[in-house]
Design a protein around this nucleic acid. Structure first.
Lengths: 208, 208
DNA sequence: TAGATTGTTAATCGATTAACAATC
DNA sequence: TAGATTGTTAATCGATTAACAATC
């Protein structure tokens, strides 16, 4: 879509901009300058302008940025204007929590299936979706156009399952398993390593 | 502890090193060179050596690094040799999932209390711990030396609860609420914004 | 028009990589 | 000793910040 590659640093900041702009919009704020936004978010105004300009000019000299427009544009950049079909692999504590908690639908993420190896859990309804055995994954991927597989399974099975899913045509993974997936470069992976995060906090506590 | 400030970039990589070294140790590998580790982890050998040298020399010329020793040293840097007492605020889907799933105790994170406003959930046992009403938090913080509060509550209450807990003496937060906590600089906060993470994945999918 | 604020270029800062002397 | 590999300095690269001309 864009000519030059956007850096990971910039992309990582987009959801936070999106959140603040959404709040401003809900408060009825119509326009905001990079300087005011910088005070609110505790980043430099320069960075804000640089970040937005990676995607073209969203502002207007002497005026600032229109909150509604900017919010919507960042949403588009993040692909939130499109629907994404996802499946959850692993209906344990975390898988169920995500299904219930995330309110995926609100942002256009539609759960099309939940799968688990555990026969005790199979048949259970989560958010109106029946937990199915793993051998039903392929049929689901074939039937719906699945964009994202959420991996909430133990690390031992995660690598194998991910490889299988790539074979089925799944192109993106939201990986909660505590392992690095080594997949073809075209496959997108976003890792959420919760223990890593907790260890960082532990480090912060320890060193003072 | 250290003379010069360690950059966030370095700290962010430590848990991953720790994970790989733990696996190598479990496989019975005794020593490893920065070059071999670099192939395994897909980072440069130079970066590995620079990172470790922030904390002093863990290796030996001509030999490499002793896996067991390095693993243990990184564990110490991350504060994993110490016990941390934590409380979970919010026993909804995510709070329960974390309590059950994380296997906190294994790394020295001891759950000392779980709290929720919802009377339906109060009294319920999670991992042998009874969910208590919010007004019992202070007594818990006073009785045990609570290092970390895990916030798995909606964003509307998170800011207020965090401020209250800071008043009780809590020094660190593992924040799953979708909001930035504005707390005194001495208070450590590690945010896990799951929606931000999913949006990043959405971005990756959208742009090709 | 004058004031405000962007878009964008230039300067700075920090992080990563390369190179190599030190040394096991 | 010779070979291997670290620790560390120097070079490069990229990201952030500052500055200012363009322009609404």
């Amino acid at each position: 879509m864009e000519a030059k590659e956007i850096s990971q640093a910039v992309i990582g900041r987009l959801p936070r901009y999106y959140r603040y702009l959404g709040e401003l919009r809900d408060e009825g704020v119509e326009r905001i300058s990079s300087q005011d936004l910088s005070k609110l978010m505790a980043v430099t105004a320069s960075q804000i302008r640089q970040d937005f300009n990676n995607f073209g000019g969203f502002g207007q000299q002497g005026y600032g940025y229109n909150v509604e427009f900017l919010y919507s544009e960042i949403g588009k950049i993040l692909g939130l204007d499109q629907q994404h079909h996802l499946i959850i692999i692993g209906a344990g504590n975390l898988g169920q929590a995500l299904a219930n908690y995330m309110n995926f639908e609100r942002r256009g993420f539609i759960i099309k299936g939940i799968f688990d190896t555990n026969e005790q859990i199979q048949g259970k309804q989560i958010r109106g979706i029946t937990v199915q055995p793993m051998d039903r994954i392929k049929a689901c991927v074939d039937e719906y156009n699945i964009d994202i597989a959420v991996l909430t399974i133990p690390k031992d099975s995660a690598v194998e399952v991910a490889n299988t899913l790539v074979g089925y045509g799944v192109k993106a993974f939201w990986n909660f398993a505590h392992v690095d997936l080594h997949l073809p470069k075209s496959i997108k992976v976003e890792n959420v390593h919760l223990s890593d995060s907790l260890m960082k906090l532990s480090y912060m506590i320890s060193c003072d």
